[in-house]
């Protein structure tokens, strides 16, 4: 690195005589190349370990067993059990994201207007911690609480309440929605809190001053300001539920078809021979779905933060 620096200084030190313009261009070009040279390790790593795998998924998704181009894998991903798993994954993500948005927003709003800095600090720290609580341990926590022999289940049975008497089961769709809330609500609080905090008291006062009732203030100012942030958060929650694997794997053991679990099954190799590449096609579908959701999130988040700037 040091040598490069020195050679650059030499170039810069050449007096600007004669054909100075082209010389300056050369030195600019060299400077630019030098400026990016420090990023080479990163780009090499990213190409090998992000680019390569992504390319492999896309490439194989359109490759038949015989090695020719085909759309059959993608078509197959939209039939039978594969299609069902896409549908139930979308349904799960939708249910989990919308309940997460509602409860997370309610808590975040309550905390934001409470005017208690201590409570705000606790909730913010706890949200950061719980939002990262997922995976296998989370599944076992809920098994211990409301599994068939869970403490809450057994405790409630003693007082005559059977949470399994209805259609609820921890090991199915309703259980997953409930368990996912454990990280979805905190995630919602983290992403929506800045928007709530960004609401200036001047806006409410100005609206009231201009003759608006509380309801009209919310209708014309409060809700429109919060909407991009809330919808944006919804997409983030949607993506996070759609892609989640570990908790679902432990809880459902494959009893309900979910796209990530299907892909997983195909990865581990229990697969009908002529459908080897359908896993890649489903992987591609997942990238597209999550990609769309994250694009919406990024766009809406940027919109929402534009209003927060001043």
């Amino acid at each position: 690195m040091t040598e490069q620096i020195q050679s650059r200084n030499v170039v810069a030190a050449i007096p600007n005589g004669g054909d100075s313009r082209s010389r300056r261009q050369t030195s600019n070009l060299r400077k630019n190349l030098f400026d990016y040279s420090g990023l080479i390790p990163f780009f090499v790593f990213a190409t090998l370990f992000i680019g390569g795998p992504t390319f492999a998924v896309i490439f194989n998704a359109f490759l038949s067993n015989e090695g020719s181009w085909t759309l059959a894998n993608v078509q197959l991903a939209f039939t039978d059990v594969y299609y069902l798993s896409l549908l139930s994954s979308l349904k799960l993500a939708l249910a989990s994201a919308s309940t997460g948005v509602i409860f997370g927003l309610a808590i975040a709003y309550g905390v934001a207007i409470s005017g208690k800095p201590k409570l705000q600090k606790i909730v913010s720290t706890a949200s950061g911690v719980f939002a990262n609580t997922g995976g296998v341990p989370l599944a076992f926590f809920f098994i211990a609480a409301i599994g068939n022999y869970g403490l809450v289940t057994v405790g409630l049975q003693k007082v005559g309440i059977d949470i399994y008497s209805g259609s609820f089961t921890l090991f199915g769709f309703s259980g997953l929605v409930l368990v996912y809330l454990y990280f979805q609500i905190p995630l919602m609080i983290i992403v929506v809190y800045p928007a709530l905090e960004g609401i200036k008291s001047e806006w409410r006062e100005a609206a009231v001053n201009l003759g608006a009732s509380k309801a009209l203030y919310w209708r014309y100012v409060g809700i429109p300001i919060l909407t991009p942030a809330v919808i944006g958060s919804f997409f983030l929650l949607f993506a996070s539920a759609f892609a989640a694997y570990a908790t679902a794997n432990v809880l459902t053991q494959g009893t309900i078809p979910l796209l990530p679990l299907q892909v997983g099954t195909l990865v581990s190799g229990d697969v009908v021979a002529d459908q080897a590449n359908v896993g890649f096609a489903m992987g591609l579908v997942m990238i597209v779905v999550v990609g769309i959701a994250m694009t919406f999130y990024t766009y809406l988040d940027r919109r929402a933060s534009r209003w927060r700037k001043r």
């Binding site: 194989n60 997983g264 990865v267 896993g279 992987g283």
Partner: peptide
């Protein structure tokens, strides 16, 4: 290289768009 910041940041965020299960798939395939 301030100008390259956006592209680098975008690349680092890709793992949020590519679900881990697909990353596993991609590693096996590449």
């Amino acid at each position: 290289a301030q100008r390259a910041k956006r592209i680098v940041e975008f690349i680092t965020l890709l793992p949020l768009i590519i679900p881990p299960v697909v990353i596993a798939l991609g590693f096996l395939g590449s």
